[in-house]
Simulated assay, not measured.
Amino acid sequence: MPDAEHPQLRTFGRIKARPIKPRQAALLETLLPRLRVPAEPFDPRALAPAAREIWLEIGFGGGEHMAAQAQRHPDVLILGAEPFQNGVASALRHIDEQGLQNVRLQDGDARELIGHLPDASIARAFILFPDPWPKTRHHKRRLVNAETLADLARVLQPGGRLRFASDVAHYVDWALERIIASPAFRWSAERADDWRRPAADHVTTRYEEKRLGDCAPVFLDFVRI
């Protein structure tokens, strides 16, 4: 377990890029404190007692997918984690413009949020286009690893679903190898189109449309056994 002398390796890169626009900066000061999840163990049901399910998006980028799913499913509470400040600011804009009441945020490492969640509290988890850390010496920083998968297995309900997507071929192979090696997950694909085409409920974002990777987007869906 990580400690002060042996901290967890970062699985994300920079936390801020261009200057944040004034309106979004204001939302960071006013809206984010109201949406931020507790910085200690908590029961997400207490945040939204009427929620049908609790979903988790790890690394929500600019928040497009998270906001769209929240709008489509107002009876679901979506927890989102993102360390990139510009992304958090963008997500807050989406939340504010759409008047979403069913989103709560962690503006930091998703692994901290997962560590604060109770067992079997999450029905769905999304890891969409995470930092691929393409250099071989940095592969150890990839989010999909045995430790993170064990943590996800703990918080996902039996029958809960995990979706991983990437447009980096090596990371797709990496993730598939590690997730199917876990006894906690079953790959749900039955035919090639199940990973070559996005599921009907997927939300395509502007980032995904840029096709910055080296292959067409691949979508891997798993079930918590």
Rank of each mutant, 00 (worst) to 15 (best):
P2F: 15
E5T: 11
Q8V: 05
Q8M: 14
L9E: 14
L9V: 08
T11V: 13
F12L: 05
R18T: 04
K21E: 15
P22C: 00
A25Q: 11
A26L: 14
A26K: 13
L27V: 07
L28P: 02
A39W: 03
F42A: 07
D43E: 14
P44E: 13
L47R: 00
A48T: 02
P49H: 11
R52E: 15
E53S: 09
I54R: 08
L56K: 05
L56S: 06
L56C: 03
G61R: 06
G61V: 05
G62T: 03
E64F: 02
E64C: 01
P74T: 00
D75A: 10
D75C: 03
I78H: 14
A81M: 01
G87F: 07
G87Q: 12
L92H: 05
R93L: 12
I95E: 08
E97G: 00
Q101I: 02
V103A: 07
I114R: 09
P118K: 07
S121P: 07
A123P: 01
I127A: 10
L128C: 11
W133E: 10
K135H: 10
T136F: 06
H139N: 10
K140D: 02
K140Q: 10
L143K: 03
A146W: 07
L149S: 11
V155H: 14
L156D: 06
P158G: 00
F164A: 03
S166V: 03
Y171C: 05
E177W: 03
R178Q: 14
I179A: 02
A184P: 01
E190Y: 12
A199I: 04
A200R: 10
L212F: 02
G213E: 08
D214Q: 07
F219N: 08
L220D: 06
F222W: 04
V223R: 14
I225N: 13
I225D: 13
